[in-house]
């Protein structure tokens, strides 16, 4: 189940997730939903009811383009990045890296400090 922190992480980055998944190849909606769950190892799961409106919004903005193509004996609507979408992905990814790097440095620095203190205490006890 998604927690409050999951929500914070996902908030505002849903577009980045989808754009990133479409970077290498075109994908259809069902595949995108499954991939998000799989690659995040179940931590991030998209509610399907919000995935499709989001895809349509990205399409309206011109970041992705949807086209019907045959797949597995039926036709499916595949989404691929447009030139604008690719530029947007670069920008959003850069912002995300800066943000997550900053958070990481703070969180990991705290953990490293605690680990150092624990080691010192263990050494003293020994």
């Amino acid at each position: 189940m998604a927690t409050a922190s999951d929500k914070e992480l996902k908030k505002g980055n849903a577009e980045l997730l989808i754009l990133a998944l479409l970077e290498d190849k075109a994908r259809h909606g069902y595949e995108i939903g499954k991939l998000i769950a799989e690659r995040s190892e179940g931590v991030l799961r998209f509610h399907v009811a919000s995935l499709y409106p989001l895809l349509y919004r990205l399409e309206r903005r011109g970041w992705v383009k949807g086209e019907w193509e045959p797949a597995g004996g039926r036709r499916r609507r595949f989404y691929r990045l447009t030139h604008t979408g690719r530029k947007t992905l670069v920008e959003q990814r850069s912002r995300w890296r800066a943000f997550s790097g900053a958070v990481n440095r703070i969180v990991e620095a705290g953990a490293a400090h605690r680990s150092a203190v624990n080691s010192t205490m263990e050494a003293q006890h020994a």
Partner: peptide, 9 residues
Amino acid sequence: ARPNQPDAA
């Protein structure tokens, strides 16, 4: 009742 609310969208 509705886990994974579509907050991302």
